[in-house]
Design a protein around this nucleic acid. Sequence first.
DNA 1: ACGATATGGTGTCAATTGTTACTATTTGCC
DNA 2: GGCAAATAGTAACAATTGACACCATATCGT
Lengths: 152, 152
Amino acid sequence: METLRLDDFLPFRLSYTSNRVSGAIATAYQRLFGLSIPEWRLVAVIAECDGTTQAAICARTGMDKVTVSRAAIALGKRELIARRPSASDRRAFELGLTDAGQVLYAQVAPKALELERQIFGGLGAGEATRFLATLRRIDAILGDSAGDVSAR
Amino acid sequence: METLRLDDFLPFRLSYTSNRVSGAIATAYQRLFGLSIPEWRLVAVIAECDGTTQAAICARTGMDKVTVSRAAIALGKRELIARRPSASDRRAFELGLTDAGQVLYAQVAPKALELERQIFGGLGAGEATRFLATLRRIDAILGDSAGDVSAR
DNA sequence: ACGATATGGTGTCAATTGTTACTATTTGCC
DNA sequence: GGCAAATAGTAACAATTGACACCATATCGT
């Protein structure tokens, strides 16, 4: 039997490292801006693409629609985003940053890039690029199948 | 201002892919063996290293001690692991697989390796190796500092 | 045009997860 | 030897998360 060593088992190591990175980032955002990870993701997506809807954010980020809904409500209450009823679909909102949201984003975005550099800047030349490419290849292998590899 | 694109933002992509992989694995283990991810990790560690204690498992896997405690109790109830009071430290248990646990492990381990191959086998030659090495480098960068990058 | 079905979004509930506090034992220090 | 501080493990609680049910609107087939 081929042996199994947890230390070399890729799904474990991936989860382990990812959790550490997420923890570090989450702490920083909470402390600096009072934003949870879902909330800051919404801010980032909306800044990139004004007028998106919650469903579009779900598709793009893989977050659950309930998570997105809660984050949107919270950001709305803090008046960081505006939720205008969509003209073309009266069930949906078009999400946009308010002025306050744009001010926040102007602080958040550079900080995000700085954190990224702190963590991934120590990698060798090309290493980060290859790493990102491999992550994308894994996504492709998992496919659009909601991720149930074992269902065959 | 250097632009921030969520699609290229490494902490996000890492979390995204890791969640998909974990989800796939978790579903498979739940369905096949009725094991949660913490539980199957305990089985794997104990199989590798008979007589370990819960604290050692925490150190090795980064899991919270409460999580480990719960998993150990659950596995004990199912009589997959035995929890013998440690001779040298009467607070601790020495954990070991029962006969039933070993039977289970003999099924679980090959399946784990097969799942790993299904997901990571599609990567190019050396790509998986480099990927693992990069994960370890990231761990090293984060250091032992409980992961608070922002605390400076 | 109209009924069936799908979709955007939210409320509610259950399960998971982490936080804090606690007991029992051990270790280090005087 | 005895007391302070640390550690192994657990319990009780709080917060996060996701699953499910639901309403309003939109889309599709006929």
